[in-house]
Simulated scan of single mutants.
Amino acid sequence: MKKLFILCCLLSFGMAGLNQLSAQGVGEFSYQVSFPTGSFKDFVGKTSFVGFSGMGRGYLKNEQLSIGGSFSWFYFPDKKGKQTVELGDDGGVYTGNLSNYTNIYGLLAIVQYDFKKRKEPVVPFVRAGIGGAYQNQRQDIGLYAFQSDGVQFMMNGEVGVRLNYGYNGLVIAATYHSLPAAGDIKATSFFGLKLGFSSSKY
């Protein structure tokens, strides 16, 4: 319940930022290729080609600083082939085709700083996000299935560049997400390459 309360607070913060879109706002939709890192690679070792995010930001009086919120979805599948695993709880060992996969649905409050005025043709930026995510980690081995799901804390750091043409722009960025372990849910981290489209309202 505490995590859910924090998640709701972060959503409220993000919506407060989105309220500024009526004056000076940017909407963004992105596709991301992700690469598992750290201990998460033991669960899912393959590159994910399923990652999408939507974002809205409003600029503050400092015209290079903006705040907002984002929603994202990432899917990591990994078919590991025939494996022998321990079932736990004195279930012995079992040999079968092993598949691990997880879905991550993230909701973040976002802060972004542009290194140039936002109307410049090329605008490099850094971005940070903090919030929560619902994750569903599942392992299938033969006839058996094991699942761990719940809410986790989520952090994101990003560096990129926006190529503007009129009120629209192309976004290219490198990004990193981290979700600490929570209950039976394994710690999750991954690096990503993002390609997005942005639309501004001045």
Rank of each mutant, 00 (worst) to 15 (best):
R118V: 07
F52D: 05
Y94E: 10
Y101Q: 15
S53C: 02
G81N: 09
L87N: 12
N97P: 11
V50W: 04
T84Y: 06
T47K: 13
D89T: 10
G92Q: 07
F49T: 14
K61M: 02
G91L: 07
G58T: 04
T37G: 09
G69A: 02
G51K: 12
D89E: 12
F49L: 13
T37H: 07
N62Q: 06
N62Y: 00
T95A: 14
G68W: 00
D89M: 10
Y101P: 04
S48G: 14
K46P: 12
K82L: 14
F52Q: 06
G51V: 08
S70Q: 13
G58F: 01
F74G: 05
L98I: 07
W73I: 09
M55Q: 15
K80N: 13
Y105L: 08
V111Y: 00
S70T: 10
R57V: 02
S99W: 02
K41L: 08
K46M: 06
K80G: 06
K46G: 11
N62H: 04
Y113P: 06
S72E: 14
I67E: 02
L108A: 01
T102V: 15
W73F: 09
A109E: 05
D42M: 11
K41C: 07
Q83P: 10
S48Y: 02
G69T: 05
L65W: 05
K79G: 13
D42S: 15
R118M: 01
L65Y: 00
V85T: 14
F40K: 13
F40N: 11
S99C: 07
Q64H: 02
L65R: 05
I110M: 09
Q64E: 02
T84Q: 14
K41F: 01
S48R: 11
D78M: 09
T102N: 13
Q83A: 11
I67H: 02
G91H: 02
F40E: 11
Y101M: 10
A109Y: 06
D114R: 04
S72K: 11
V44Y: 04
G56T: 09
S66L: 01
F40A: 06
V44M: 06
D114F: 00
Q64A: 01
S53M: 09
G56C: 04
V93R: 15
V50P: 12
Q64K: 13
S99L: 11
L87D: 10
R57T: 06
K117W: 00
F71R: 07
L65K: 07
D42T: 14
T102Y: 04
E120Q: 12
G68E: 03
T102Q: 14
F43M: 10
F43D: 08
F49E: 08
P36E: 08
F43W: 08
Q64M: 03
F74E: 10
G81M: 07
G68Q: 05
F71K: 04
F52N: 09
D90R: 12
D114E: 08
V50S: 09
D90M: 05
D114G: 03
G106A: 13
G68C: 04
K41I: 05
G58L: 02
V50C: 05
L60F: 01
G88E: 07
F76N: 10
Q83T: 06
T95P: 12
A109K: 10
F43N: 10
L60T: 05
G106Y: 01
G96I: 09
K46C: 03
L60A: 03
K119Y: 01
D114W: 01
